[in-house]
């Protein structure tokens, strides 16, 4: 398979853009499901940056980190969705602005 010869920074800029999108979503969306999606996007962008960096030096480390990020995302989403179910049961809403019982 032939290699890709785009500048590395283009890939990294794409990763940064995706990360920014995720961050923006996290800050803007009030629905917890969308917040979790934003988190997925952010993790994914980080994984893209790692894979690209691994490809630059033709090392396997980038993909190893990708695998770790994958497992983190899987664990996070399983717990997060469990929480979503509980929040829906308790507050009858997924709006995180109304579920603010931790107010100091």
């Amino acid at each position: 398979m032939g290699g890709l010869q785009v500048p590395l920074e283009h890939v990294q800029v794409l990763a940064a853009l995706l990360f920014s999108c995720g961050l923006l979503g996290l800050m803007l969306r009030r629905n917890i499901i969308f917040m979790l999606m934003s988190l997925e996007v952010m993790l994914n962008s980080a994984a893209l940056a790692f894979v690209a960096a691994g490809a630059k030096w033709a090392e396997a480390d980038g993909q190893v980190i990708f695998l770790l990020i994958l497992s983190v995302a899987a664990a996070e989403i399983s717990v997060g969705l469990g929480l979503v179910l509980q929040i829906q049961r308790r507050f009858k809403t997924l709006d995180m602005d109304s579920a603010n019982r931790l107010r100091g």
Partner: peptide
């Protein structure tokens, strides 16, 4: 990112 301009190698892992 601008500090380190480089090309991706194109070598598959």
């Amino acid at each position: 990112l601008e500090q380190v301009p480089a090309l991706t190698s194109g070598v598959a892992v």
